[in-house]
Design a protein around this nucleic acid. Sequence first.
DNA 1: CAGTGGTCTAGACCACCAC
DNA 2: TGGTGGTCTAGACCACTGC
Lengths: 242, 242
Amino acid sequence: MADLVYQRVISSLKEKIDANVYPDMRLPDERSLAEQYDVSRSSIKRALSNMSEQGIIFKKRGSGTFVNPLYLKQDSYFNYSGSNLGITDSFKSNGQKPGIKVLDFDVIRPDKDMQDNLFLQASEFVYSFKRLRLLDDKPFMIERGYIPIKLAPELTEEIASDSIFNYVESELGKEVNKTYLAISAAPSDEEGKKLLNLKSNEPLGIMEGIFFLNDGTPFEFSTMKLHYKYFKYDSFVDLDNH
Amino acid sequence: MADLVYQRVISSLKEKIDANVYPDMRLPDERSLAEQYDVSRSSIKRALSNMSEQGIIFKKRGSGTFVNPLYLKQDSYFNYSGSNLGITDSFKSNGQKPGIKVLDFDVIRPDKDMQDNLFLQASEFVYSFKRLRLLDDKPFMIERGYIPIKLAPELTEEIASDSIFNYVESELGKEVNKTYLAISAAPSDEEGKKLLNLKSNEPLGIMEGIFFLNDGTPFEFSTMKLHYKYFKYDSFVDLDNH
DNA sequence: CAGTGGTCTAGACCACCAC
DNA sequence: TGGTGGTCTAGACCACTGC
């Protein structure tokens, strides 16, 4: 895990921050850190830049680098982007028992859009499946997923009734570690009313996106319709860089 | 803004992507780009890395760099990929004329939650204001905001009817550059039906969050209720960083 | 094997801040 | 003015892909 220089630095600095090694909330300057860790300043910068994106520290040009006081308060506000819910197969369940019911499972030809989304040729096939997800036997999400068969040739309905991403990790030696999500809301549709027990004034939360493997390959295109009470998405956004 | 090398590269590459200069969705390799732009490979890497974080492209080690197909289709109001506006006072308006109507404007004592959110003592006051945002004179969002008076002592209703963040930047010499957002959805309430012309089966998109200054100070706590048709949020998530 | 992106280094110079 | 973070360079070497 920590075989990369900047990751080692991040881990170490986090530990020190947590252990209150910097009671004045100020970190040593970058050049000193480079010397302390015996690495280049560039690597220190990479580590600090990463931590800044995570909201752990703030950098002030000309002044120094400081710990974000809210980070120390360990509020629920630093659950970094999307970690609250729904990004992976394993939804954070808050002690509730998660379940999955596969509603259909087929192999189809992708249409043009799907070919674009998953970087496929017209001749390649994809799995298409619909799953109902439950917490304590109560349905909260309908999911339609598409996965190229070449990326998971042995995928079965049984695997889909468990965690597909865990399967990818343990059996295929790959990892799903990035996702591009488009988030929106819509009035409940027939399916939502029927499967999620929504009243007609109660909405659906919609998450649509592509999941990527760690080598950058688009692995799954997924449309998730959530019961609005289970729909919450946290995001920490850096407005610079844009 | 475009006086920085990597920002020039980003702008240029974005334009080329939008102009479909790469119909096979593949960008030139980093070394070629460095040569083309007559900059170092490090600067190209910085530009591409930034674009990758924004979800515009994704990189495949050993294979190349590719355009994210979902980026080309996006039409979000809250994307922080396509513009330098992002989730600030200035919503991306797609050519529509934005407007702001201040519905109320007061100074109040923060309750316990607000004290925590804005890092305040019980004795400190905050501005509380409600704003209706419009596009081409059509209301699309109701916003309730709270700002500590000590952070913007001269704030007025008139400033609030324009861009508060622009005021902070130009008059106070600070910058709002980070935000934590919690995103959800809810059935339309009375206010939403009345001010946003929602039918009772049509939902609200909810964005609640804290905006930070560049020194890490929490500047504003805001609750935004959006007409669901204007509610779309794009997010590119790295599942590793935790 | 050639080509691609990933990591890391060493150092130059710039922009900003506080004294 | 001295110290800080920000930008940029030039290049070495590694890890992975695909023929």
